[in-house]
């Protein structure tokens, strides 16, 4: 009986926030790896892109910085067009990122070397 009580209790409390605001997927892992350096860029691009597609299909929102991180991966893979597209997508989804995204897109920051 007390176990049932605890279960209901936990369930009702978890109802406070039904779903996460954002779909996180591999993002937290990708961030951690990116900060540690030395990783499989193309594999990570694949992971991030696949998850982005599934999130879109489910109508879920990707978190702040997701597109920007993907853009950085593209830059490291030598794909500047995709990098720019991702930075602009970040700016479109999250206008407060505009100052930083513009900074990255402008020539001021000597672009990411291939």
């Amino acid at each position: 009986m007390s176990r049932l009580f605890l279960l209901f209790f936990a369930v009702s409390l978890s109802g406070c926030a039904q779903h996460p605001l954002y779909a996180w997927g591999p993002f937290d892992d990708v961030i951690s790896r990116a900060l540690q350096g030395g990783r499989n860029v193309n594999g990570e691009i694949l992971r991030m892109e696949q998850f982005a597609r599934s999130a879109a299909m489910l109508g879920q929102k990707l978190p702040p910085g997701y597109h920007a991180q993907l853009g950085l991966l593209y830059a490291e893979a030598g794909n500047e067009d995709h990098m720019e597209a991702e930075y602009m997508q970040e700016k479109s989804l999250y206008p407060v990122s505009g100052i930083f995204m513009d900074f990255l897109l402008s020539g001021r920051e000597a672009g990411y070397e291939k």
Partner: peptide
């Protein structure tokens, strides 16, 4: 990485830390 998750879910815009 986890700080990004927690702060974003709490309603902040977190600038992408790797960048």
């Amino acid at each position: 990485a986890w700080s990004v998750v927690i702060l974003s879910e709490a309603g902040y815009y977190v600038l992408p830390p790797a960048l």
